[in-house]
Amino acid sequence: MRSFAALRTTIMLLLALVTPALAVEPSEMLKDPALEARAREIGRALRCVVCQNQAVDDSNAEVAHDMRRAVRERLAAGDSDRQVMDFMVARYGDYVLLKPPFKSDTWLLWLGGPLVLLLAGSALLLAARKRKLEPPPAPLTDEERARLSALLGERKP
């Protein structure tokens, strides 16, 4: 039993040594579920500035923890979501937004995909119109239709 206790102490000590926590901690959370839900939404849209492509909400970095707390403080003080985002952008720049704003230097990012679709799509349509196939064959006359069904009927077992 002694060795078990010793093991327990060692493990607890070892675990206490390393950096803690996975993302949002209970101590950070707001009492008001509606506000907390907004805070989570914002946390998912903000980038943790010291991590690699992680949202503030998913990060256990110190600075992410501070940012989550600041978001909640602002929300509790009555800020709108937009104001909270602006608060962060004022400090960390557009870098902090996981969805870049539409601006003079990001229009290509936003419109690139649709532009590809539009250009390639219209090129295809133009090509199709130019090709316009041979005109569709004239519809069968009644006589032909009768012969056809007769032929088809014959082949049916």
């Binding site: 010291v50 600075v63 501070d66 600041a70 400090r91 960390y92």
Partner: peptide
């Protein structure tokens, strides 16, 4: 870390 946040510290 509140001062740091105002200074855009990472």
């Amino acid at each position: 870390g509140k001062i740091a946040l105002d200074w855009g510290l990472s």
